[in-house]
Simulated assay, not measured.
Amino acid sequence: MFSIRKTLASAIAAIVLATGAQASTTNVDVELSLLIDVSGSVDNNEFNLQRQGYIDAFRNSTIVNSILSTAGGRLGKIAVEVVYWSSSNAQSRVVGWSLLDSASSISDFADTLASKARTSNGQTAIGSAIKFGADSIASNLFDGTSKVIDVSGDGENNQSTSAMEGRDYALNLGITRINGVAIGGTSLLDYYEKNVIGGTDAFALQASGFDTFGAAIERKLKAEIEGTTPSPVPVPAAGLLLLSGLGGIGAIRRMRRKSTV
């Protein structure tokens, strides 16, 4: 009998310890879910440019310094995941939640992303992708001062949950802000502003094409890590007409939509 009781007590203790381990969280400055478009409208060359934009950003000394900065009471660490998305059931977490708290961990994160091939090429289900990111943040083992979903894509939602439904779902779940990078013309930037981004100080950046995506990503990440919004890129007067025709490189629209939580 004693042996049975001892075995039962040991089992209960193991369950308690396991539960406690699962319940513990790591405090970070930002929880960042990066949602990268791999829908059918994105060809393989464009996918590579998009992925490389993120890789280069996390290898950029400015971004590394922003992550590790303890200025203003920051902790100097963030948690990041990368999700490739297309159709409503085609989200793929290619890089799981990673703690970036040193130059080496940031470098490892960039190297891991560089090894991740494309996972799908379906429809453009932005709303479903946002919901996936929100659920992922809600269930991870980090506790960030800011909880951010970042959507990059080259088209409007055309399947399943609407972008607005996904946005509202995420805000109701406690996401701080949903930002976006619209890869295309001003009409897509308008769509992202009205339907995708949300939360306090949320913003949408525009990359006129996949070849300008990297510059927009670096500006976006710096703002998200530091809890700010990016300032528009200064443009010489002689270049204003050209940029107005191209739709701009890294143009910005902001939406200060308060969370309904």
Rank of each mutant, 00 (worst) to 15 (best):
M1F: 12
R5M: 14
T7I: 10
A9M: 12
A13R: 15
A14N: 13
L17Q: 09
A18S: 08
G20R: 08
A21P: 01
S33I: 04
L35S: 05
L35K: 09
V38W: 09
G40Q: 07
V42R: 11
N44Q: 13
E46G: 10
N48Y: 07
Q50A: 10
Y54G: 02
T62W: 04
T62A: 14
I67G: 07
G72E: 07
G72F: 06
G73Q: 05
G73V: 04
G76T: 01
G76A: 02
I78V: 13
V80H: 02
Y84K: 04
A90Y: 08
R93N: 06
R93G: 01
V94G: 05
S104H: 02
F109L: 15
D111T: 06
T112L: 11
K116A: 10
T124M: 10
I126F: 08
G133V: 09
I137R: 09
A138W: 01
A138T: 07
L141T: 11
L141M: 10
D150Y: 11
V151E: 03
N157P: 08
S160A: 15
E165M: 08
G166D: 02
G166V: 00
N172G: 10
L173K: 15
R177C: 05
I178T: 06
F213T: 07
A215I: 05
A215Y: 06
A216I: 11
K222N: 14
E224A: 03
T229K: 15
S231L: 12
S231R: 14
P232N: 13
V233Y: 10
V235W: 06
A238M: 14
L242H: 05
L243N: 14
L246N: 13
G247R: 09
I249S: 09
M255L: 15
M255F: 15
K258I: 02
T260K: 13
